[in-house]
Design a protein around this nucleic acid. Structure first.
Lengths: 168, 168
DNA sequence: TTTAATTAGTATCAAATGTTACTATTGTGG
DNA sequence: CCACAATAGTAACATTTGATACTAATTAAA
């Protein structure tokens, strides 16, 4: 069981304030209030809760799921487009496609207009699996967001929008 | 360059509303509005921005950094306590400790009271490096949060609190 | 006590991931 | 045209990560 931290620096002001951040440099950082850390912990938990629905039951990795979710949004799309759309590196996407082809969930054919590129799409099986996953992850999302009030959900969306714009 | 999605389901209501989530199941999920996905993308960016300050300049992995940050908060602590406090698996922590010992940033000695357990602490060098990192990551945090208004930062903190309580 | 069950930490092996470089194809400047 | 740069996708290698199982030590149970 964990004892009490030696020195917990009060960082409420830091988190809240926008002031010029020149506090003493040799202070102890309280990880539990450090935004990047909190975000990482939260993301991990949300990711675990969500990925159950495709990993456990359909043996899909997160990258594979994202590729499928991207393909479902487009008629036919190249691997590079998937990278751009889904914010993943091309090697990740390439490998995910390879596995999805093995599982016959995705078809890949050389593009007519550019013989370097390929056109990808979900197979019937791929679509079927996709359609079974969607309501489940949506329900999971709603379960999680359900812990927030309606106005908090609005705030959250706006905040994520802002941060993404800023960090893009 | 990416073409327009075939069918973008309007999911604003879903994201905002708390309603009973029985929409048609065979809809297309718009990844870009799906909370777990957005959170993952955001977390990745924040993580990259933050980790620059210890990875690039001190060759520390994220886990190593977290172990150090945890050690800095306690006089002397066991590996298991680090796991519990920092939300990491024990194998991750064990490996991070091994590397930190190689770098002479951490000392590990067998606990007096329990000869299975160990007591860990930062070395002088470890403390020195820690103290150089803290102001940098704090500044990075502030730069990121600086894109939000003061009230938004407050909202964000409250929202993370709520979600973490719920998902714990 | 002696035995069984639990715990702390690590070793080991398989799987996933990152990095670099390669092949094939297309675009571009002379 | 032709040489050269840029692009799409993959291969190959090194490194990291995850899962399992193991050793040693402690606790609980009979």
């Amino acid at each position: 069981m964990l004892v009490t931290p030696v020195t917990i620096v009060k960082r409420q002001e830091l988190f809240y304030s926008n002031s010029k951040m020149n506090k003493k440099t040799d202070e102890i950082l309280d990880l539990r209030q450090f935004f990047p850390y909190r975000l990482a912990v939260l993301e991990q938990r949300v990711g675990i809760a969500t990925s159950r629905h495709y990993r456990h039951d359909f043996d899909l990795s997160r990258v594979e799921w994202r590729v499928m979710a991207t393909l479902a949004m487009f008629d036919s799309i190249s691997a590079t487009d998937i990278c751009e759309f889904s914010h993943m590196a091309k090697m990740q996407v390439s490998r995910a496609i390879a596995r999805l082809k093995e599982k016959s969930l995705v078809i890949q054919k050389v593009s007519e207009s550019d013989h370097r590129a390929t056109q990808l799409s979900l197979t019937e099986d791929g679509q079927k699996i996709y359609r079974s996953i969607v309501p489940r992850v949506l329900q999971e999302e709603q379960a999680i967001l359900g812990y927030l009030s309606a106005s908090e959900r609005g705030q959250l969306q706006k905040i994520i929008d802002k941060l993404e714009d800023a960090l893009a």
